[in-house]
């Protein structure tokens, strides 16, 4: 189990999270919804160590792991797919995957398996990663996190700016990953999609949890109120 325990987070003097708590169990899919600037991305960055946090702010299977670096969290099985995909432009598609595979953990997800699941990626493997379409880049970005064989996959806005068809491809890849027992945290602008894909949800507003519960029982009026703070 991965959890955040009443965490405050800052960017310089600006406070982004206020005593926020959050947890996710192995194999679970949890959606984080909320308006822009609510603190969803900050929460993900806090978990992987890109934003400073106190030692007992992040707990993994009963151990305090807050304040460790991104490579250390990756080695423990927590991987982040950053917003905006952020593939390395100087590396080919294959090299992006090779880099991550070498630094990540051993497990079911390998480069040959990903190539097999996505023949289109195999076709483009020797191209610079910037030469791909947005949807293809997003698939590579998720694959790059998957080859590290994490237990917890944190996805930041993976459908942003993609065509509806590409969004289906992206979520298709995710559902296959979940089939292997992977826990997924989804930060998503599309509330309907987020609730449909997840088991539980947190609605975050101004750095605090405004509403949480089972996605299936979510009352849309209550979610809208929590979302917009009305």
């Amino acid at each position: 189990m991965l959890s955040i325990e009443s965490v405050d987070a800052y960017y310089g003097l600006f406070q982004a999270l206020f005593g926020l708590s959050f947890s996710i169990s192995p194999g679970e899919t949890v959606a984080l919804i909320g308006s822009n600037g609510a603190g969803k991305s900050t929460l993900l960055k806090t978990i992987v160590g890109a934003v400073r946090v106190r030692r007992d702010g992040v707990r993994l299977d009963g151990r305090d792991v807050g304040g460790d670096t991104e490579p250390q969290q990756l080695a423990r099985g927590i991987a982040l797919v950053p917003e905006g995909r952020r593939l390395f432009g100087s590396l080919t598609v294959l090299e992006n995957l090779q880099l991550a595979a070498r630094n990540g953990r051993a497990g079911p997800w390998t480069i040959p398996r990903l190539m097999q699941e996505f023949p289109v990626m195999k076709e483009f493997q020797h191209r610079p990663s910037t030469a791909l379409s947005g949807g293809q880049q997003q698939l590579v970005a998720i694959s790059r996190a998957l080859v590290c064989n994490p237990n917890y996959l944190l996805c930041d806005e993976i459908s942003l700016g993609l065509s509806p068809l590409a969004v289906n491809d992206v979520y298709g890849l995710l559902s296959r990953a979940r089939g292997d027992g992977l826990a997924v945290v989804l930060v998503e602008q599309n509330v309907t999609r987020a609730l449909a894909e997840s088991g539980r949800f947190y609605c975050i507003q101004k750095g605090r949890v405004a509403l949480s519960g089972k996605s299936a029982d979510a009352d849309h009026a209550a979610v809208a109120q929590a979302y917009f703070g009305m």
Partner: peptide, 16 residues
């Protein structure tokens, strides 16, 4: 090359 492109993302794929 990854670090030269984007150090913050390089950390996410395990490059310290």
């Amino acid at each position: 090359r990854a670090v030269a492109d984007d150090p913050a993302t390089a950390r996410l794929v395990g490059v310290d």
